[in-house]
């Protein structure tokens, strides 16, 4: 018998919601493992934990052969986006510890979705702090409807996207303490209020959203050139710029 499952936990400092529609014994167990994976990532990859792999790497305490495959992969992704944005996106700000959080988050949550997939789940939605991975359809014939939060009103939307097997990530500065620094200037990026990216996977969507936000105005165009990415951006003048291929719900 198939039953739905909904679960919310605070992990990696984020509220993480799982909405599993094709729940059975196996997929429900996979939800436990998905949360366990996120907790493992928090221990290993948090720059706020002194003994995490990431902190040790930041202090240059790990020899190259001591790097885990996972951390090596994350570092490759960070380097890619740092180069691609001309340094606007960076994991090494002056006077700050090595901080790959922007990449780790999307990568970890995509990994959690893969755990559900591998257990046979085909109809689910994972939301981690507003970054969303969808699989299949919530109801037969219907896409997942993902609202984009309005930059000025937490209880309102400025767009609704329709997704099947895709990811959405939003980077914005409307929450207290949530500043993205433009690595080229060392100053907080202020051109954009919010940028939302859809992609096939959350690693790409989250990385591109963060990197584009750091770049500012030119980041909108840059994001539009990233593979399989669609863009919905709001600048500080509250003008919306979006790509024509953005999957807007009807």
């Amino acid at each position: 018998m198939l039953t739905g499952l909904r679960r919310v936990e605070q992990v990696m400092g984020l509220p993480v919601s799982v909405d599993l529609r094709d729940g059975d014994e196996r997929t429900r167990h996979a939800v436990d493992r998905a949360f366990a994976w996120l907790q493992e990532v928090d221990l290993r990859f948090s720059p706020f934990r002194f003994d995490s792999e990431v902190s040790r790497h930041g202090r240059a305490e790990l020899a190259p052969e001591e790097l885990s495959d996972e951390l090596a992969h994350v570092i490759d992704l960070c380097d890619h986006y740092e180069r691609s944005t001309g340094g606007a996106f960076t994991t090494r700000l002056p006077d700050h510890a090595f901080d790959p959080c922007a990449i780790v988050k999307g990568w970890a949550v995509q990994g959690a979705a893969t755990i559900l997939q591998d257990a046979g789940a085909r109809r689910f939605c994972v939301n981690a702090g507003g970054d969303v991975v969808t699989s299949g359809e919530p109801e037969p014939g219907l896409p997942w409807r993902v609202g984009v939060r309005h930059p000025d009103h937490a209880d309102q939307l400025c767009a609704v996207l329709a997704l099947r097997n895709g990811a959405v990530a939003t980077t914005a500065n409307y929450e207290r303490g949530n500043h993205i620094i433009d690595g080229r200037t060392g100053q907080p990026a202020r051109d954009l209020l919010s940028i939302t990216i859809t992609a096939n996977d959350l690693i790409t969507a989250d990385a591109v959203a963060t990197a584009a936000f750091a770049m500012g105005t030119e980041g909108i165009t840059w994001a539009a050139t990233q593979p399989n990415c669609e863009v919905f951006a709001i600048n500080s003048s509250r003008h919306v710029f979006r790509t024509p291929g953005l999957p807007i719900a009807t």
Binding site: V132, V168, A172, N178
Partner: peptide, 9 residues
């Protein structure tokens, strides 16, 4: 909607 995308950290 089924879910919301936003910076909710």
């Amino acid at each position: 909607i089924d879910s919301v995308s936003g910076a909710t950290q």
